[in-house]
Design a binder for these strands. Structure first.
Lengths: 203, 203
DNA sequence: TGTTATGTACACCGATCTGTGTGCTTACGG
DNA sequence: CCGTAAGCACACAGATCGGTGTACATAACA
């Protein structure tokens, strides 16, 4: 994301069209959706000739898949890596999404593409599973009785908030966070590795 | 759904093309999505001439909106009207979706259309609010401390299960039901309208 | 029976979509 | 400075999209 100069194959050649294409994808696919964004418009926004785009990507499908792969997962990794928070706080922090966040592109892609076999759909599936797994890890760290279950539950809450926000056009994450708090308190024995014991996980 | 003979305006004229169109919409929009279903294909499936379709609907947008309005809400109303269940059981029954259910068309429409102003998007919003309201009513009946909050929470769980099922291609409703059980038990004072000892601890 | 709403058949429109073919320019690295 | 890979401009192909125009058929009801 930060590096715009690295060429496609590592060798620094040309003027980094690929990065511009992916950058434009981020913006347009999220603003307008995938199906409503044509390659012409995308190339224009990226200031890249259409020919060049199709030299970097065999087709729109591949571009969409790469767009999902490149989607900045800062919300995710940024939360799980915060060592200044207790595991329990980290679980809750996953619901602190700035209200400006457009909305989960993975759900959008899965719905828009509508084909579970599509590479992007498969990646979306993998990503969602990975999130649940990381939540489960953190839940285990927090001392949850059944970390896998709690992880899956919290993941469902996040997706619910995302979907509901999209449909209602109103932020649903606070509601999800409230549910999460209940679930976490229920699943974690009161005595377990909780707040004040700032479990330094020692990096 | 059952009646195919009723004409568009009540008077029985012609051969009920409108119903066939809407019936085909139900199938195709859900199987393939809205954007991936062309009017040509839809008319062919409905065995209706394209001209006729555009005499009944001013455009695809109107058809989509009507498709959502006509979507059989049996899952919803069928649950809330069951007087054989206690309010608490009714709240939980909302998560007993047969695994064959294709998946919430309202979320699909909102994502695919991608325009909050689209009539179908507006209807989806209204519908989701109505569901939350009915859940809140039932929650009140069940003696919940904060029925509105519980209704909104359960609605979010349903949407989460729907979205997650779509992305993961695996039934997520059991997980949502488990969360719902926790929320309900937390929100309803033990002594409240939790009708006589019908408490079935099925899980 | 005749009138009229309803539906049909089918060609056709312009727009837009993904994707190519071709020939030219430019920047970079040796 | 030169060769080559990267990128560009732009027309175009073929499909599909939503939507219409026109002329004809038929079913329902008076």
């Amino acid at each position: 994301m930060t590096e715009v100069e690295k060429g496609p194959k590592g060798r620094r050649r040309g003027r980094g069209a690929r990065e511009r294409i992916l950058s434009a994808s981020q913006q347009l696919f999220r603003e307008q959706g995938i199906n409503r964004t044509g390659m012409d418009q995308l190339c224009a926004a990226a200031q890249v000739s259409k020919r060049t785009a199709y030299q970097h990507f065999t087709g729109k499908d591949e571009l969409v898949a790469e767009y999902l792969r490149r989607f900045d997962p800062s919300v995710l990794s940024g939360v799980f890596d915060r060592t200044d928070l207790t595991p329990r706080e980290r679980l809750l922090a996953a619901f602190d999404v700035p209200p400006t966040t457009p909305l989960c592109p993975y759900i959008g892609a899965a719905v828009e593409l509508h084909d579970p076999q599509h590479p992007a759909s498969q990646y979306a599936r993998d990503y969602k599973k990975a999130v649940a797994a990381r939540l489960a890890d953190t839940a285990r760290e927090a001392g949850a009785a059944d970390p896998e279950q709690l992880g899956e539950q919290l993941a469902l809450l996040i997706d619910g908030a995302a979907a509901r926000t999209r449909v209602l056009n109103a932020d649903a994450f606070p509601t999800a966070a409230a549910i999460a708090a209940v679930l976490i308190d229920t699943a974690i024995p009161a005595t377990a590795g909780d707040d004040r014991r700032r479990e330094e996980v020692s990096s």
